[in-house]
């Protein structure tokens, strides 16, 4: 469904991503793990069109998208939940969700989708008239995911959904990701620094280090891999 071939990205003068190739099959959850600054966020931004690649190809559903604008890529069915959530702070929760459906103007469909998001995250329904900036971090994450889902994507890019959240809230978010795949067949490319919780929900994973793919494999393989354990799971092992 989503294929990257030899993607290079320069961030100013920094060569942030070096010849990265990866693929995500329909209905898969794939995790992209790696330390801070490994190029994970840059890579997701290039897929959704916010960042430009300096080389390589990105293909979504058989179409080359590396030169498309973000607003076009959303319409193709690929939504990106950005790092730090980036909700529209001064706008109400309901307006945030409504703007998620900016590409869908058919009113009835939007209302039904809105109900579905509220059913999934009841706290958003309770707070629909509040400013998004007044929500807690976990609620903002739910809102950001809900906003992305309002565009009815077939593939979701999730950037650090657990960042800054309490472990319990983080778990809940990941549970929703699994549910979305199970119920809707949603394909997910997930970026996380917390390798353990990401691999727990993902089918496969790629380990990124200083812009390169270091390792890839099924979640079980990566969890069992000596290097991965040492580099990314060390702290969890002590617990």
């Amino acid at each position: 469904m989503l294929t990257l071939r030899n993607v290079d990205i320069h961030y100013g003068r920094v060569h942030a991503v070096r010849r990265v190739s990866l693929h995500v099959a329909p209905g898969e959850i794939v995790a992209l793990i790696g330390a801070n600054g490994a190029g994970k966020t840059t890579l997701l931004s290039a897929i959704s069109g916010v960042e430009r690649v300096s080389g390589g190809e990105i293909e979504f559903d058989g179409k080359r998208i590396e030169a498309e604008k973000p607003e076009r890529i959303v319409r193709l069915g690929l939504s990106h939940v950005p790092e730090r959530r980036l909700v529209f702070g001064p706008l109400s929760v309901a307006d945030n969700l409504l703007l998620g459906a900016y590409t869908k103007f058919r009113r009835r469909e939007v209302a039904a989708d809105l109900d579905e998001i509220y059913a999934m995250f009841p706290v958003l329904r309770e707070r629909r008239d509040q400013q998004a900036a007044a929500l807690s971090g976990g609620e903002q994450q739910m809102l950001a995911i809900g906003r992305a889902l309002m565009a009815r994507p077939r593939c979701l890019l999730l950037d650090e959904p657990g960042m800054g959240l309490a472990p319990q809230v983080c778990k809940e978010i990941f549970r929703h990701v699994s549910t979305l795949r199970r119920d809707k067949g949603l394909t997910v490319l997930l970026v996380e620094q917390n390798a353990k919780s990401a691999l727990a929900v993902a089918d496969r994973g790629y380990v990124l280090e200083t812009g390169r793919v270091l390792l890839s494999g099924t979640s079980e393989e990566l969890l069992a891999n000596h290097d991965v354990r040492r580099a990314y799971l060390g702290r969890e092992k002590d617990n």
Partner: peptide, 10 residues
Amino acid sequence: CQKKAASLVG
């Protein structure tokens, strides 16, 4: 208020 997110919703 949030250009990047605005372009991400289309």
